[in-house]
Design a protein around this nucleic acid. Sequence first.
DNA 1: CTCCTTATTAATAATTATTATTAATTAATA
DNA 2: TATTAATTAATAATAATTATTAATAAGGAG
Lengths: 137, 137
Amino acid sequence: MKQLAEILKEKGLKVTPQRLAVYSALINTNTHPSAETIYQTLLNDNPSISLATVYKTLDSFKSAKLVKELNVCSEHSNYDADTSKHQHIVCTKCQRVFDIHCDNSNIDYNKIEEQSGFKIVDETITFYGLCSNCQKE
Amino acid sequence: MKQLAEILKEKGLKVTPQRLAVYSALINTNTHPSAETIYQTLLNDNPSISLATVYKTLDSFKSAKLVKELNVCSEHSNYDADTSKHQHIVCTKCQRVFDIHCDNSNIDYNKIEEQSGFKIVDETITFYGLCSNCQKE
DNA sequence: CTCCTTATTAATAATTATTATTAATTAATA
DNA sequence: TATTAATTAATAATAATTATTAATAAGGAG
């Protein structure tokens, strides 16, 4: 748990029990939960935490580039504590979001920038389908 | 306008002025508007249309595979009347969404399915950046 | 072409996700 | 340890979307 506090400090964030709880909840799952899901998870050990605090904390983390907000479904945002470049796969039934790594080395950013006139700063690749659990039904 | 009615019929949708209006609004723009934006656009010619009707109509179109719902930002959904395979680029400032075509032929779906256990049914690739207009500021 | 059945619409209320407000509390530094 | 400023919990407020319902209109049967 010591390391987490260090990471927050390095990013200039004040260390609080709530922030440590949110960050460790994000780190200890591979399904990139929503704010509500994080909140429900934390309620066990931290019954006085507020949902608004979870949102505010996630927003702080986002500003500090400590987490990324994922727009993989229309109902809510999901959050990912792994900010390195990777992709996601989403189950259209249970809504869970998993990491994958796929080769996208042939994307020609210069060409896209030329054609669109944009200056590209980010990219997401997301696959949708049925997870192995949900296929069994 | 004749063709639009035909398209709706083919998809088993009852043809109404509201549906024709929503569909043609979607076809006559390349920025993949939100429900609210479509609603505002339609208000000119169709001052009695309801926002809830726009949502319901978009949902019918989605079920009929006539439009795709895009999850490119957390604030709202965007809608695309082009259901063929292509990609999008989103301006992080003005929030507009444009089409692009990028080569993603080296994505190995079988490999991703093997590694994840998923059965893939869809895929989105989205780039984020500043559009040429918004760069001038 | 008109009637009938049923789906669609407009108006509105309700819901869900998220953000703002504020007073009380807590973390970091002196 | 006291001070100060940021954070928190509680709650209200907002924005996007969905549900409800009574009125209306589309499309087929006669």
